[in-house]
Design a protein around this nucleic acid. Sequence first.
DNA 1: AACGATTATATGTCTAGACATATAAGTCAA
DNA 2: TTGACTTATATGTCTAGACATATAATCGTT
Lengths: 242, 242
Amino acid sequence: MNVAADTPDQPTLYKRIRADIEKRILTGEWPPGHRIPFEHELVARYGCSRMTVNKALSELAQADLIERRRRAGSFVRRPQHQSAVLKIADIRAEITALGRGYGYELIGRKLRAATAADRARLGVKKAGKVVAITCRHSADSVPFAVEDRLIDLASVPDAATADFSGEPPGSWLLHHVPWTEAEHTISAIVADDRTAEALDIAVGAPCLVIDRYTWRSARTITAVRLLYPGDSHRLIARFKGG
Amino acid sequence: MNVAADTPDQPTLYKRIRADIEKRILTGEWPPGHRIPFEHELVARYGCSRMTVNKALSELAQADLIERRRRAGSFVRRPQHQSAVLKIADIRAEITALGRGYGYELIGRKLRAATAADRARLGVKKAGKVVAITCRHSADSVPFAVEDRLIDLASVPDAATADFSGEPPGSWLLHHVPWTEAEHTISAIVADDRTAEALDIAVGAPCLVIDRYTWRSARTITAVRLLYPGDSHRLIARFKGG
DNA sequence: AACGATTATATGTCTAGACATATAAGTCAA
DNA sequence: TTGACTTATATGTCTAGACATATAATCGTT
């Protein structure tokens, strides 16, 4: 009954069905708009029950490779082309992955009542206290990135007493505030005097900027700006689409 | 039997189970490492069959919110923190989304045998022909981005005769080569003479650079470099993690 | 030709079982 | 204490059905 009973079915059947279809889509054998065989046809082809086929197709639909339409069938989707997965690694992990020695240095730390600028940056309206932190990450003692961060104490009271001289605030927050959401904005600037000195680069040299705004259940946690020397740092994003 | 029989079960049951668990994770009620109720416990709680619970948990595992371990149970995962979804829209879509008028201008187009530099950029070893294109995208007649592209004719023969004077090569490729994979590298540079003139910005002004390398079934299609004025362009990436 | 009602059908969800399998935990011997 | 063996159990996959539902296609009427 099973057409492929002779092949070594190491992966489970539904995974094989999913891989078979994905391959045909990715190689272009089934171009966008092509109708995939109906579930009952795949049931006949693979000699399995409908639930098994359904699981394979559901996962393909979840991955946006196909679109499923009631009564009509399942169709290969037009490539999406707009979303890529961007790896924004922890800076320490990034540096150690390069086989270089990680260094961290706290430059400044202030606890203050939120100024108007602080509130705008955090996107909060109510007055409150914040911690402002400036620090530097280095690779083999060469400046790698400078970090300028604001933490909302209303959301993370523990940050008031935390000691950031030994542990970077990003890492501290990761262990104290689980499951946040964030938005990154990537842009480019040229180094001003302060930035140039902190990164040990020339004034006017290009810098890659990552602004990260983090919240948790609609509550602001932290806003951070990371500045990287533009000629030495790269962000990699991969995607599947068109 | 169904505990929530009184609630309006608009979404299907497995979606409600998934949403219930996701909410507890995202609010921190179930922190990383916490063991989620066993499938048989959820079966009892929701009064449904195991397959329904299993579908909910499988999707949560696929989204990396939980980790499933045989014999041990399902556990809330530590936030990932490294992957964000980056929206890299089609430039025309991006400009029209801003409510501005899109303009396109072909600056140069050459068909030539691949030089050593071309082969390095495309990541191919064999000699062959390529099309090199330089063009500019503008918003309300203001330069928005300059594009410098190489297309491998061995993979896309039609590009040899395509007319790129009216249609941007990115858009043309999208309609002629379905389902590709790509890698983006984002960096920052300062504008040199040529770039400054093309973007109508000052020499030494910061530029955001996106290098996109596209392939299809292990076959190179195109390599493109997009240069944006660094102070006016922003890339946004969203993610769920820590 | 245009519109409204009916029907057929592919997907969406669910059930109540089944056996496979990895592995945590317990057992026992060296 | 350690290592080898056994056992219990939670997940992984699958079946052979079922009914619900959205909608493409058909039919009938104006």
